[in-house]
Structure formats: C-alpha cells, structure tokens
C-alpha cells in the first residue's frame, strides 16, 4: 500500500536515479539484461496530443531529428505502444482518455510527460478544469521539462528512459499496479461518477501475476 509519508511520483525520481547510479545492472541475470537491452532498443510511442506540446512531437520523427535511429517510432494504437507521451496540459476530459489508453497498453509500459503543465499545471495552474499533477492519476516515468521542450530535449528524455529500461529498473506500471487503489481514488476525485470503466484494470486486484 502506498504511504502518504513517502515521496510522490516525480519527487522520488531523483532519489531513485541516484540510488541506481551506483549499482549498475546490479542483481540482474544475463537474460534480464539481454531483455532490458532489447526492450530499450525499441520503443513504440503512443503520442497523446493533449496540449500544445504535441507540436514538438512531429519534428521528432522528421529527417532533422530522426528519432527512429534510437528505435523510437510511432504506434497507432495503445495495444502496440510501449511509451505513452503526454504532450502538455490535461483537461479532465482528456485525462479520462489518457487513463483508458494507458490501461490498454501492454506491460512493460512507460509514460513520458512533456512540459511543466503535467507537473503542476503550468500556466493553467488555477484553471478549474486542468489536471495539475499528472502523477496523481497515472504513474509518470519521465518528465521532460520546458514549455515547450524542444525535440532535442525529447530525445534526451527518451534516451534517459532507455537507460533506465536497460538497467531493468521497475517502471511506473508496477507502481500503478501496486497502488491502484490510490490512483483510482485520485481519479475518482476528479471524475466523480464519470469514471472510466473498471474492466481495464480490475484484474490487477484479482491477483493475476
């Protein structure tokens, strides 16, 4: 169970990064390392163009930045995607779709959030309808800061994520699975009765491994 006293989401990131720096690939067998290496070489991206940040996603795939050389390529549906990119602020309406898309992705899955809006609402911090702290609703693996972050920054973020995958660090999806009640409670606070359907996650609690 998630404890309130512990750090939340992105706040843990630095600590975790630091903690892992010292013990490279520690505790992993050859197979796991190979798997991690293969996984990080191939990231299928579901780019969720929620806000203005979506504009920066397109150049990423073009000749100038060519994300494909890192094995990063777009996916059409959440079923095929490994990484969900939240590009900018989230309204309540879009959050619902984001959550549903995220729950439909197959593990291992990661979330990259772009821009400050996903961290604290950014310039929309006092909007009545904007989600201010994305990490309360879905587990974010990587924040890419900026308003908006340039494609170079995006690539930076992706490579950082790849590095973490290679090292076999637990992804956000494990956190989501472990703390599903907390996430759902947060989501319910926003949506009220208008929750996304339960059938996309309720198997978590049925103890399936």
């Amino acid at each position: 169970m998630y404890h309130k006293s512990d750090c939340e989401g992105f706040q843990c990131e630095q600590r975790m990064l630091e903690a892992n720096l010292g013990q490279d690939d520690a505790g992993l067998g050859v197979v796991e390392r190979l798997i991690g290496w293969l996984r990080q070489r191939s990231l299928f991206v579901l780019a969720y163009g929620t806000g203005c940040g979506a504009i920066e996603m397109r150049p990423l795939m073009t000749s100038r930045f060519d994300a494909e050389r890192f094995g990063i390529i777009g996916a059409a549906t959440p079923r095929q995607a490994d990484v969900l990119v939240i590009s900018g602020y989230l309204a309540v309406k879009t959050l619902k779709r984001v959550i549903r898309s995220y729950e439909q992705m197959q593990e291992p899955k990661y979330v990259i959030a772009l821009g400050s809006c996903t961290i604290n609402g950014g310039m929309y911090w006092d909007s009545y309808n904007t989600i201010k702290c994305l990490d309360h609703y879905i587990p974010v693996d990587m924040y890419i800061n900026g308003c908006m972050p340039r494609p170079e920054a995006l690539i930076e973020g992706f490579t950082a994520l790849q590095e973490r995958i290679r090292r076999g660090e637990p992804g956000g999806y494990q956190r989501y699975r472990d703390n599903i009640d907390w996430y759902k409670a947060n989501q319910r606070r926003v949506f009220g009765d208008n929750m996304p359907p339960a059938y996309t996650y309720d198997w978590y609690s049925e103890g399936a491994t």
């Binding site: 293969l38 996984r39 070489r41 191939s42 299928f44 060519d66 494909e68 050389r69 890192f70 094995g71």
Partner: peptide, 14 residues
C-alpha cells in the same frame, strides 16, 4: 540516419 539494420530484430524481440 535511420535505425540500425538489426532494428527489426529488436522490435520483434521486444
């Protein structure tokens, strides 16, 4: 530049 020539293997394995 494009991906490495092994990229399809990686994708497939992933």
């Amino acid at each position: 530049w494009g991906p490495s020539i092994w990229q399809n293997l990686y994708d497939n394995m992933k």
